[in-house]
Write a protein that binds this DNA or RNA. Sequence first.
DNA 1: CTGACTCAATTGTTCAACACTTGACAACTT
DNA 2: AAGTTGTCAAGTGTTGAACAATTGAGTCAG
Lengths: 264, 264
Amino acid sequence: MTRNFPWGFTRRMERSQIHRVSVADQVAGILRQRILEGELRPGTSLPEIPLATSLGVSRNTMREAVRILSIEGLLRRNIHRGVTVAQLSLKDVQEIYHLRRMLEIPAVLAGKPGRTDVFQELRAAVDAYEEAIRSRDWAKAVSCDLQFHTLLIRFHGNRRLESFYQKVIGELRMGMVLVDRSHDNPGGLVPVHRKLYQLLVAGKRKQCAAILAQHLEDSEARLGRVMAGQGPKPGARATRAKYSRAAKLPTRADGRGNSAVAGR
Amino acid sequence: MTRNFPWGFTRRMERSQIHRVSVADQVAGILRQRILEGELRPGTSLPEIPLATSLGVSRNTMREAVRILSIEGLLRRNIHRGVTVAQLSLKDVQEIYHLRRMLEIPAVLAGKPGRTDVFQELRAAVDAYEEAIRSRDWAKAVSCDLQFHTLLIRFHGNRRLESFYQKVIGELRMGMVLVDRSHDNPGGLVPVHRKLYQLLVAGKRKQCAAILAQHLEDSEARLGRVMAGQGPKPGARATRAKYSRAAKLPTRADGRGNSAVAGR
DNA sequence: CTGACTCAATTGTTCAACACTTGACAACTT
DNA sequence: AAGTTGTCAAGTGTTGAACAATTGAGTCAG
């Protein structure tokens, strides 16, 4: 239904391009990105006022943003004691991998050859993964890794499940930045993903599921090892976040510039 | 670690019983209850200011509560157009039942005889269900029904999964109040639940799973029929909620009375 | 060393004001 | 009459300031 207009726009463009997200959502998106990218480490304390002024928003707006993220599980809120970036325990990791096995394996088994769209995206994710490894961009590599698995979930064709899975994967990513760049074999997982993809397009679902199960097992074991290694450091707890007034949100008067702020 | 004190309290009681929930959470709990009980029907519009004054809280606090519920999926927020109680579509119902099959059936299959605690709670849920039917308390009956299924999920032993399932079930309940009291055979499901319970304690998991699958199938079909029957009524859309200043939150000066407000 | 007290810092909550959108209605044009 | 353009009220988004409540740390007498 995209009607064409003489001046070259379409109705659809008019609606979709215009920047129509609340400031609180944008702030939440920025914080989410910083947490997921590891700039804000688990356990970091986030006082409202400095955080708000550093982003150039009011305290109320910042509180809304913080609330969004604490409901999403990225922040932990202790009443009258402030919020901190959530911290994954070993038990959390076990729970998350239990979920992954529970959701990803049936997803693979349900992956019908008809979903060519998903297959294409999977292929793209594997390629991007390989490219990220080649250029030693570890952060992007992690993203591609998780993107691949998120796409597997799509075979279930269930929006609620997909958003739940993304939330879970987000928590995991927060734990993985704790692993930092201590990857022992960074590129080792590309062939695994490629193999999974090939088995999938070949329709060999059971074989694919078996390899996936093994892959998840390995992945959990590796993360578990790293987390056990660098246990809780009581001295370094409650790190205070440093703020720079550099990255401010655009004021309304400044214009409606960057629209690529929203998270996920 | 519950130390006893001369005046008869324990440390644990001191911490847990004291009313230490933010007002916004309480407000969210109240609204959640009203939505889930059907007092606020799907599609109802909820303007901030009257809603805030009717509960005796400030507009900001009400916005906090609304934010919580919209992230939970109970409210739908249209920017600059206000919030409405979320409305389930037929597709939503299909999605939810897909999830239920996906989560409940493996849960039953994973139900080991060792979980006597869960078995006891299941038994209690069935009994309460029967009692609710006997006393024709349909709202409570629905609660017991859903409580039974929530307990099944506990066999997975995964907190994240359980909270996700509860959220999904909450949405479903919102749809079920739409069904209203049009239950054709109200008590018909008690024997099914009892049968499920018995098969479970007997360790006959596969048989139990089969009956559960059938039960979910029937349940989805019935809900689908009812929803198809009373389709969207364009005239009755955007109903405005009526507010009575009767039910106000206790002011701080009034005391720290009711602590049973928090949701879930 | 313990316990009571003080005090600064931070969070929870409220209030009032302004900016911005939206939907509806009246006025206007053709 | 139909469509377009002002106008306006109602409601939401955001801000800034204020006050209440809680916490954690420091102080000081016993």
